[in-house]
Computed example of a mutant assay.
Amino acid sequence: MHSRPELPQPLLAVDGVTLQYKTTDHLVTATYRVDFEVLPSDRYILLGPSGCGKSTLLKAIGGYMAPVEGEIRLKGKKVTEPGPDRMMVFQEFDQLLPWKTVKQNVAFALTASGRANGAEATDRAHHYIEKVGLAKFADSFPHMLSGGMKQRVSIARGMAMEPDILLMDEPFAALDALTRRKMQDELLQLWDDTRFTVIFVTHSIEEAIRVGTRILLLSPHPGQVKAELNSIAPDEIGTPSQAKLEARINDMLFAK
């Protein structure tokens, strides 16, 4: 009798998660009973229209807010607070300390969290700055960098922590189209090198297909799971397969 191959254990399990937050007038339900699992080395996309709770879900995975229903588990352990095992990269470029150089910004995250000290922090910072192609700018200050470069430093800082999951909240949304495409390609190259696990929030169908291996579609407010799809292989980008998947996702997201 052949034993069936073991399926990989999910790295992250989101189990029936409902999230709410208060505004001055209302209690807003951002997501309703959302379920999904992220496996090691997934490039997992949360895709949906504005207001479907994608960013709120990412904050909850980061440990910055607690579900009112359901739970989030990382490596089987319930997420209750932020930790260096989950690093966030936000949309804003100004996430860096302006008085520290690129290398100091990356090393500071390591020393402040206790992940590494002294020479080890500096070496690790240098390694990841090289990975994102900024070795020449290691001693530059943030004001000397373009928006795309600052975002690369933020990614290097997140990766230097060697977290279990990198959480990216529309990290390229504020970039112009050409820089955005370049950053997507760089992210994929970085993933090829290191196979890190990433959860990536976007409302661009094209970006979801280019960046992701799996795509979770969320309905408009409150966000509920509409479907989970596999993306296409990298060599199918720009072929009719991409157009077909884009049309299919568009229909699923916006069909009445």
Rank of each mutant, 00 (worst) to 15 (best):
I199S: 04
G114F: 11
F93S: 00
E186K: 02
T179D: 01
A138M: 11
A160N: 01
T213F: 11
M159D: 04
A112Q: 12
R210D: 09
F200W: 14
A119F: 01
F141N: 01
M88A: 13
F137K: 14
Q95N: 14
F137G: 00
H203C: 09
L167H: 09
M88Y: 01
A177W: 02
P171Q: 03
N105E: 01
M183I: 06
E120Q: 09
S140M: 13
L187D: 05
D94K: 07
H143S: 12
A116Y: 03
T122E: 15
A109Q: 08
W99T: 14
S140I: 00
D85A: 15
V153Y: 11
I215Y: 08
A173H: 01
M149K: 05
K100V: 00
T213S: 15
E207K: 02
F196Q: 07
F172K: 01
P84G: 13
W191G: 00
R181S: 15
D139M: 08
R180Y: 06
G133A: 10
A174G: 03
P142M: 13
I205T: 09
A138P: 10
P84L: 11
I129Q: 03
L110A: 07
L166K: 02
P171K: 07
R115S: 12
D176I: 07
A121D: 04
G158C: 10
I155N: 05
R115Q: 09
G83P: 09
F93Y: 13
H126S: 11
G212R: 08
A109E: 07
G118P: 09
P163R: 04
P163W: 04
P84Q: 12
T179C: 14
F172I: 05
K136G: 03
R157F: 04
V198L: 12
M159H: 02
